[in-house]
Design a protein around this nucleic acid. Structure first.
Lengths: 217, 217
DNA sequence: GTCTATAGATTGATAGAC
DNA sequence: GTCTATCAATCTATAGAC
């Protein structure tokens, strides 16, 4: 959008697509609905992106590239600090370095309120083409985290670390999905969420406590 | 299917639909493909079930009704045993009573090899109509588990127990999804899975250890 | 119960004027 | 870059013969 304060068509389409893909899923969201809500012409998606799938890839890349930079820096900072102090990195600081920015990204980066939900659903997406677009962009960072976690837990074998990390990823993505939906809330519970919303600080600490306990078990 | 050893059309459609819904998702699976693979006519789905959505509901009900009976009995057994021994139920035995049959159901009930994947995806389904069909059938049991967990953890407030249970459900459903897919496996890792498959016994124990540690934290 | 045939709607994509 | 118009494919669902 450059210096203008009005976003151009391409940017508006990305914003609307991100929100609709997050809340209704890729296959349930038609290009007609995206372009209509973005105030653009139906043909604009194919002009600017080439296809619906290419649009999804751009939606991911726009946020994942800066987010991955943040997470990589934090992970490497934990690794380097441990090295300088001549000790192993601890699982809790590694998990925090990865998970905290993942969940908080919606607050750090303005306009990405719905990206959390989108990412939370990405791994559960049934269509492998769609799922692979996401996996391709997340895999290098996931591998780094896995590698560092192994060095942090030298007494555990690869399989055990791998599965515990999967359990932690399951908890994390489930939380990310829930932040956008509430059908799972038991009747009569947590009505305070309705009024004040979820306290993200407390939620992140609860989540980190949970996965750290299971990881260090 | 009664006494015949050949399943009737209705049953064959349910089997194929379960598998295709699990691996490709509800919206990505057409009635044409289901009926073709089931060796039935396209119109058979609407004759036997009324609609595609009603078919999905039958796919869920066929397995969830017996599975829920098992889980309820196990949960109530834990509760009653604790009451007889005049103590509180423990979180680990409650989680085991719920999670173990959930994951092992594919082995207990012949023909339900793909139901695990389907359930693992159900909560992440973007379409709320589809998601609600599942939630409606699982909610009573989830509420029972939540209630018993609260009594097992009297020092924790409702919100904390609620979120920890959500974290555990996230881990569990993520595992159920992964049992059918392997794109997330880091390159070069866990090749033994390819040959021997995942050892379900070890996986279940790892998962229960992980979520119990986080729950009792 | 099973079949053919088709209605009726929606989709992603594109050609071509401006 | 944006628009209209439309194509070609797909889908669920149903009517009606057998």
């Amino acid at each position: 959008m450059g210096l203008s304060n009005v976003k151009d068509t391409r940017e508006r389409i990305l914003d609307v697509a991100e929100r609709l893909f997050a809340f209704h899923g890729f296959h349930y969201t038609s290009l007609r609905r995206i372009t209509t809500e973005a105030g653009a012409n139906l043909a604009a998606v194919n002009y600017h992106f080439g296809s619906k799938e290419a649009l999804l890839e751009e939606v991911f890349k726009r946020r994942l590239i800066p987010l991955n930079t943040i997470r990589r820096e934090k992970l490497e900072a934990v690794r380097d600090r441990a090295a300088k102090e001549e000790r192993l990195p601890r699982p809790d600081e590694l998990l925090r370095a990865f998970i905290e920015p993942t969940i908080r990204f919606c607050c750090l980066e303005p306009g990405s309120e719905h990206f959390s939900t989108l990412v939370g659903r990405a791994l559960a997406e049934p269509d492998s083409t769609v799922r692979n677009i996401f996996i391709q962009h997340i895999m290098p960072l996931f591998s780094l985290l896995f590698e560092l976690l192994q060095s942090a837990l030298p007494d555990l074998d690869r399989n055990t670390v791998f599965w515990r990390l999967q359990f932690a990823m399951g908890s994390t993505t489930h939380v990310m999905r829930m932040l956008g939906k509430r059908e799972l809330l038991p009747p009569g519970l947590v009505r305070e969420m309705e009024s004040g919303g979820v306290d993200l600080d407390i939620l992140v600490e609860n989540l980190l406590g949970f996965v750290t306990a299971g990881m260090e078990l």
